[in-house]
Design a protein around this nucleic acid. Structure first.
Lengths: 215, 215
DNA sequence: TCGGTAAGCTGACGGCATGACAGGACAAGT
DNA sequence: ACTTGTCCTGTCATGCCGTCAGCTTACCGA
């Protein structure tokens, strides 16, 4: 899909170049986890990678450019999220299981990509279309599948006519994302991870089906 | 509650000083709305306020410090959110009305304070306790009230024993916050503002009461 | 083996933001 | 007019940004 990897000035990157490039990305990832986004400086990333700032600018236009790169890789990996909802049933006990596994998988993915997702959320909220697009790509797999499920149930008359499947699905996905990204916030409310998950699953089930789960 | 306004080097600020200080805060607010957080520079804020960077540093330790100030003012104003839930009924038609008004008020508040809330969310997600505290203060008024409502219904046996009121309330509040902060994201999913709100209200009602609303 | 060529890296530099300080401008009271 | 304390800014050392020319390294064909 993407062509060859190229430097900013148009040269094609060879083995060594790609390795350096990757090392810079890895170090940037680490820095994002350990210090506030606003304070991540090119020079720190370069130092950490054992190279010079000039090298950084050979591969990326700026910090944001490199962040986008990382985010795109992650978005590609997010394809695995689709498996959490694709072709699953939302009725009866199987539905409850679906809800639980979705919550579990989603939270796990979010926690694994914690740092970079924070930046993506910020960029998207600030109206940057490149970040919005990536955010969409990640959430879409889950979202569209959920919307389909709601629409299905609606067609069968098991969900009210006046609900908007896309709106419901979007809201639920946003809830998952919010809960995942502010997990610490919940502990201040006296809610532990382990308690949070089943309650999220309950809300997912309720939202999709409009009725209480049979466990 | 807070004592006198003081400069960084300990002097008390007089009328004129407070005015300058406030102007700097206002300009910073504007800048946060118009450019990415990462790119907001002291020198730009100062120029916009018709003063010099040195003046800025007289009143605030850095950009983050000033942002915290703005956020705290906003948190104080968020007390108005408490009125959206305090003492409201969650049963029958009144409950549906409560849900709608809560969604409406919350979204409006969030939209009004869009820019600063983005930064607060980021700071909190990055683990900065000062931002987490402010975030808590804003969400708490709604959250604790919701949790109380759930606990009430639970005591009356109208909600299952095994739900955790705090977890449910927190998740719902997070959903509202997420939906409010990424309103543009929904339009990419083909969901308009006007359609989104009733669906959010539906999810709120479902979450709190565990059953469908009677409209 | 030996250039030739392109990839890869860095030192160095002008430019700009940061953050500190000392001193000048200003308002208010005497 | 003088004093006092508040308020603002010119200036400076420091450090990061982003670019360039030029050096080193790897690869390849003859």
């Amino acid at each position: 899909m993407t062509g060859q990897v190229r430097t900013v000035d148009g040269r094609v990157a060879g083995r060594r170049g790609q390795a350096t490039r990757q090392k810079l990305l890895d170090c940037l990832s680490e820095m994002l986890s350990s210090s506030p986004y606003r304070d991540v400086k090119v020079i720190d990333v370069a130092r950490k990678a054992g190279t010079s700032p000039a090298t950084f600018y050979q591969y990326f236009p700026d910090v944001e450019g490199a962040v986008l790169e990382i985010a795109e890789t992650m978005a590609a990996e997010s394809a695995s999220l689709a498996g959490l909802t694709a072709g699953r049933s939302w009725t009866g006990k199987a539905g409850w299981q679906t809800a639980q596994e979705l919550v579990d998988g989603f939270m796990e993915f979010w926690r694994r990509n914690d740092a970079i997702l924070r930046v993506v959320e910020l960029g998207a909220a600030e109206g940057d279309k490149r970040f919005s697009k990536i955010r969409m790509k990640i959430l879409n797999s889950v979202n569209s599948s959920l919307a389909d499920s709601v629409a299905d149930l609606q067609a069968k008359g098991r969900v009210d006519k006046d609900v908007n499947p896309a709106a419901i699905a979007g809201s639920l996905v946003v809830m998952l994302a919010g809960a995942a990204s502010q997990q610490k916030g919940f502990s201040s409310w006296g809610v532990k991870q382990a308690e949070l998950k089943p309650n999220l699953a309950l809300l997912m089930y309720l939202g999709v089906t409009g009725r209480k789960p049979t466990k």
